[in-house]
Amino acid sequence: MCERADPGDTMSTPLFVVQLFNGLQLGVLLFLVAAGLTLVFGVMDFINLAHGVQYMLGAYLAVTFYRLTGSFFASVLLALPASMVFGLALEVAIFRHLYERDHLEQVLATFGVILFLNQGVKIVWGAAPLNMPIPDILSGSIPLMEGLRYPVYRFAIIAAGLAVAVALYVFVTATRVGMLVRAGATNAPMVSALGVDIKRLFMIVFGFGAMLAGFAGAMVAPILSVEPGMGDQILILAFVVIVIGGIGSIRGAFIAALLVGVIDTLGRSFMTDMLRLVLAPSTARVIGPALASMTIYLLMAIVLAVRPAGLFPAKGRA
């Protein structure tokens, strides 16, 4: 997902701050992917494992458009509608035939879509990782504090992610379509019994979800290697996010995404050091990394033990 700064030998304040920002950056990317996932799951009760593919595709599309236009901004802007069109094509061709099926069948079918598209990407773009440069005005780093600089581009990702989160929040809370999306996430049959074409509403949600995941992919294209299967890992994290946040809740997805991003990143950098405070260094070195990769699942287990439907459950009446 995001390559990490070297975990130094000690827990210094600058390193902590850097990792905190890295965690935020992962968090906003997770939010962009999780937003569509949670609404699709919430409104249509549809489990779409292939949502991570949209993220991968966004990255590939950005690279392709970059090669065509030579402009980072043009390539990201073009990747947005292209991601949406691709998502809608998948919806029409495959996913809409799965809504009535049970969850296991949805999981199997959309897993098949992942395999198919990961291979498809290899055929179209080749198996070798691709990349694109960071645009000039977003390159370099800025000083945060004494002896600490942070890359501008990563700030840009955080800022863009937060801006999208705000826009999405306004959309979901203040527009008619947003109201219907929230209503649909709690009781879709009732929305349709009041005269709303829920399938069309769902297409809108699906298209926007695909576009947001594609946007996340396009934003990371300059800092990650763009390769087949790059969406698989973030998809797993995104599922953790929507389960913690509460299925169907945008607000829950936002808070949970930041939590997961920060806790995962900090855990990976500092778990070994923290364990060293209570364990022998050699033991800490063995247990640390293992425990670090489990922190978010522990977080999920704790949240679910206290709030079985997640932090902000949308489903069900109360």
């Binding site: 008619r176 209503a183 709690t186 809740s249 949308a314």
Partner: peptide, 28 residues
């Protein structure tokens, strides 16, 4: 069917819990 002119007040009320009262009225 709803659009043809039927307004449903369903069993169990089925108010949208995450919408305000006013939004429940406006949304549909």
């Amino acid at each position: 069917i709803a659009r043809s002119g039927i307004g449903l007040v369903p069993e169990g009320r089925q108010i949208f819990p995450t919408l305000t009262v006013e939004e429940n009225l406006i949304a549909t």
